[in-house]
Design a binder for these strands. Structure first.
Lengths: 251, 251
DNA sequence: GGCAACCTTTGATCTGGATCAAGTCAAAGT
DNA sequence: ACTTTGACTTGATCCAGATCAAAGGTTGCC
């Protein structure tokens, strides 16, 4: 059964070439030969179960991680035992970029559901990126995109009302799922209302009430964690404050 | 007057070697010879007057900028004509990292006072960083640090009270000024109350009232834009919510 | 199956900070 | 000196969303 051996060998190493999220991830813009060299350093991490940690705040930084399937949340400890959810990570998204500078993780990452990940030892990635310019370019892009994403969150937290925040969140999920070839109008949220609220700077109760209101207004159908978006245009205008009679704030 | 010619030649090009902010900027970790190659691509930008734009939102991304003297604010347009201040940039800090991915600026940058800057054409920097590994490393660090900084802001905007926010802001300025060899307890704020409030997600009036309260409580002396910090420890505990009888929030 | 822990919803109330509304003050021009 | 202008302060009021309270619903575990 030589055939079988080859197969099992193949499944032990990562195959970015065939990975469904390759186009969103590090291989973007690389030549096939270069992707091969990337595959050589990427490790397949043991799958995580819901609640398992990928790393914890304070851990030494060793690797970046890419979600292959499932989803992960990251969160930072805030004063007095509270925590701030920093993001929800979907397949193809890279986790850990904030730890490069300090060489230690300042936040924790935990699986929201059973999830598969790739582990990329950072020193080897850094080394490889010195010899593959397009990999370096992609790294710069990914780091920069992370900054842009956080900038968007600053705007959300600094300026948007509760109603705008949740609409923005739902649409953001919708767009990211669509990029991954999933339905942009019918999906499952793997995080709790509490986690959504925490992420958006809102109380759980506010999130719950807003979902109810959106549903009453015919913008979406909400059944527990299952969401169906009905009126994307209305959500879009809600999300940037151009909803019915809305005036800008002064600050 | 040969002497004079040499001098004027020297002032035309950038001299990172002698730059007072070099240790915070790109040259950190480079060999002298490598710093020289960096100097070759860095341009001295024409000084900006208060109110001048470094770039505007929508501009094509060409260069990163480093503040040499003065200060710059960056801000993004928010819905309905409002704006969100994203940061205040002091000497040694790099501006524009968020634009790498989209190849366009999503925010504007404007001088808060007369300011000198270095301009670093990004394509040339990218190229140089493929041949100087320690420059690449420093770029990764700087990008990562930018992410960490924004993460801190997410926590501030998501979880902190007005009182905590302003204390955090004042201490953050203090620490950054100290790193630049300036007094951490006696300084001038180049931005207006309005801009501080916008940055922190607060109304101008709230900022003003808090400064008054801090002063009444003997934490600092505030005279217009001049700030003297008196009780750093008290400010520190205020800034992370461990002030007098403070309970954590639930969300 | 049945209990326990947790998540979500819904209603009532409370409050931190926004908004509204006058001033006050300093720098710059006339 | 006197007005203008814009930034800052201070007081009064208001409100979005937090907090408190109390049910239901789910899920998982023994």
């Amino acid at each position: 059964m030589n055939q079988r051996n080859i197969l099992s060998f193949e499944t032990l190493r990562v195959a970015c070439k065939n990975c469904s999220v390759g186009a969103l991830c590090l291989p973007l813009g690389l030549e096939p030969e270069e992707v091969g060299r990337l595959e050589d350093i990427v490790k397949r991490a043991r799958p995580l179960q819901r609640g398992d940690f990928l790393f914890r705040d304070g851990d030494r930084f060793r690797s970046l991680y890419v979600v292959k399937t499932g989803s992960v949340k990251s969160y930072a400890p805030s004063a007095e035992g509270g925590e701030q959810v920093l993001g929800f990570h979907l397949p193809g998204e890279i986790i850990g970029l904030d730890a490069i500078d300090k060489d230690a993780h300042a936040c924790s990452a935990k699986a929201l559901e059973t999830s598969a990940l790739c582990e990329i030892p950072f020193p080897r990635l850094e080394e490889l990126s010195t010899v593959i310019p397009s990999l370096q370019r992609q790294m710069y892009r990914l780091l920069s995109k992370e900054i842009s994403n956080e900038t968007d969150m600053l705007l959300l937290l600094g300026k948007k009302s509760a109603e705008e925040r949740l609409a923005t969140f739902v649409l953001n999920m919708s767009k990211r799922l669509q990029q991954r070839g999933l339905s942009p109008t019918d999906f499952h949220l793997s995080m709790s209302r509490h986690e959504i609220g925490n992420y958006l700077g809102l109380a759980v109760e506010t999130v719950s009430r807003l979902f109810t209101r959106y549903q009453d207004d015919g913008l979406m159908v909400v059944d527990r964690k299952h969401i169906q978006l009905i009126d994307l245009d209305a959500l879009e205008s809600l999300s940037n404050g151009s909803g019915p009679t809305r005036q800008q704030q002064r600050n």
